[in-house]
Design a protein around this nucleic acid. Structure first.
Lengths: 342, 342
DNA sequence: AACGCATATTTAATCGTTTAAACATACACA
DNA sequence: TGTGTATGTTTAAACGATTAAATATGCGTT
């Protein structure tokens, strides 16, 4: 059995009417358009019999709306993004939209390509977890009047819609928690990134230290490059160990940093929390499963994702929707890795 | 600055020619179609000036090909699927295709919805990581002559194209490895699933035991339900512990089972590998980061993914392509969790 | 001058759907 | 008989691209 797709024309022919009537009936406009009762019933019956499925591509061309949103992230194989993707997918589907996910590895060039492909595919809007140096792309979208909302990261100087975690407070809380538990020499491993969310994770830490009268030792703050992550993190920890004023607690500013840091700490046969107490950003089973479960700042992924979809779709429906900027609080999940200093 | 999208008509008007010529030039058919040199140059120039981007939706409608493939998986937030998705995405993009990923939580109904949405969106083909009870859907696709390839799991009675791991051998090797390292009482925790890949993981284990003259204790083989996973795994381990002939080594048939199993083992303050040696399927940082790194069967995700795309696109280009069925070998990654029995 | 041929360009149909506008028919009422 | 109104249905253009077929023009040959 082959099977050409059934179109509205086939139904029209079989029913002996014009395609207009079929369209009216299929879309439930038969009342408004005054389609005859028997004809309507006949059309519905035939559509069912032939298992008619509307061609979304034709609809999209005609209507100018594809009911599709593009989700631009760094890497779908990273659990943080994968979790976001899942939330966005579910919420979008609930509202009749399909999501196209694209990974750009934090590379501006890949992101450009990706965005262009998606624009050509006429996505109705974008949810973007932005990378460094993507201001230009964002500005481009705005110029072309394509709806988008930034998720998790934003550029304060661009004044766009965004939905993100309050990273300053999260980092402040993480550090404060360690201080409360008796640690005073606290190191922070972050990325060297010219991005607001990372900067806030740094200033939050600094502010918490200051506010608790702890002199900031600049050596305690290490910013590593994205490339060669594993080595960079190892060097950072090596350096900590060599210091006179060696940190007794570490904050990892992302999940990826924590993974690499903990791996190296294991390799050195150091113990958490005795050699280093630990608090991390990000979330994954791993933090529960580590021999010493890791305290972390739980970002409200579910809320972030659904809110982003909501904000975007409002924008899609009405481009004049006023700017929406949402900050959500992270929650401290206390575990053994940061327990009260002995 | 607003910005209506630039179409081929706009270029044609500006150049004072018909849309046909513009189309020829844009698509590089100017030689074949004998477009005048100066005109061609002019068209190209104008296209550039106006930053023309072809409307992929219109192209799709006209050509009947969307250059899109649907990837149907259980859950994008599961690292196994996320990794597959990444490989598929990259390979597809390399070949000019876009991927739409859909999660169906191993539910036949969700999978149906998803597949229908994607069919309506005219995807050119599907890569499907099938769930239980999805034979009907698969058969449906075949009847409608829509190209697809099964990935990671397949239904032997359906005789479709597929690309999968040789699970029998993988499981055999996992078990054999434990036996070689001195363990003889070996438990297997698997899903109760009517699916080939799971069955093979069971028979592989059984075969390895038999071949090494180890009497199979049926209590050592536990099949748990997908629902209430955490509890079910805990019960299974409780049961093991109560047995006279308690297993000294465990094989987890999936990543999810391992996560839950290891969490519970931690909770009971049992030690790997002394209380239980462990080998698992799946892969993730976690297996390296656990206090006792976990031995696992590394599935060749990269190869599986790229091959699946290759097979599918061959099918898309020519529906008469002969059946392609590929089995790939998993590789044992030996770590401390299965070291030689003391 | 007539024809053939090569070159260059336009016309118009097509993909599947939506929808404003035109058309047709019946009936009520003056 | 004509006019108005309600009801039911068709026509045809449009979305943006592709492409077979038609057309136009110039040139060389006889």
């Amino acid at each position: 059995m082959s099977s050409k797709r059934v179109s509205i024309k086939d139904i029209a022919k079989e029913a002996g009417v014009s395609t207009a009537l079929v369209s009216y009936v299929i879309n439930g406009n038969e009342k408004e358009k005054r389609v005859g009762k028997e004809i309507a019933a006949k059309i519905r019956e035939i559509a069912k019999k032939l298992n008619y499925q509307p061609n979304q591509v034709a609809k999209s061309l005609r209507s100018g709306s594809t009911k599709t949103i593009g989700l631009v992230i760094a890497d779908i194989s990273n659990p943080f993004f994968a979790n976001i993707a899942r939330v966005v997918e579910d919420e979008a589907r609930r509202k009749g939209y399909t999501v196209i996910i694209g990974s750009c590895d934090e590379k501006a060039e890949k992101a450009w390509d990706l965005i262009n492909v998606l624009i050509n595919r006429q996505v109705d809007g974008f949810i973007i977890v932005a990378s460094e140096h993507s201001e230009e792309q964002i500005a481009h979208l705005r110029e072309r009047n394509i709806p988008f909302v930034l998720l998790d990261r934003h550029f304060p100087e661009l004044n766009t819609d965004f939905v993100a975690t309050d990273n300053f407070t999260a980092s402040f809380d993480a550090c404060k928690h360690l201080i409360d538990n008796g640690y005073r020499k606290i190191g922070l491993i972050a990325y060297r990134l010219d991005m607001q969310h990372m900067k806030e994770r740094i200033t939050g830490y600094q502010e918490a230290m200051k506010e608790n009268q702890i002199a900031l030792n600049p050596q305690w703050l290490v910013e590593v490059e994205f490339e060669n992550l594993q080595q960079e993190v190892a060097y950072a920890i090596d350096d900590f160990l060599k210091m006179e004023d060696k940190p007794e607690a570490l904050i990892f500013a992302t999940y990826g940093l924590a993974i690499n840091g903990l791996r190296y700490i294991n390799e050195l046969q150091l113990k958490v929390p005795d050699d280093f107490a630990v608090v991390s950003f990000g979330q994954a089973e791993i933090f529960e499963l580590y021999y010493c479960p890791i305290t972390y700042m739980l970002q409200p992924l579910e809320d972030l994702g659904t809110k982003a979809v909501e904000v975007l779709l409002a924008k899609v429906k009405n481009k004049e929707t006023p700017l929406t900027q949402v900050l959500m609080k992270a929650r401290l999940i206390e575990q053994k890795s940061s327990e009260m200093k002995k």
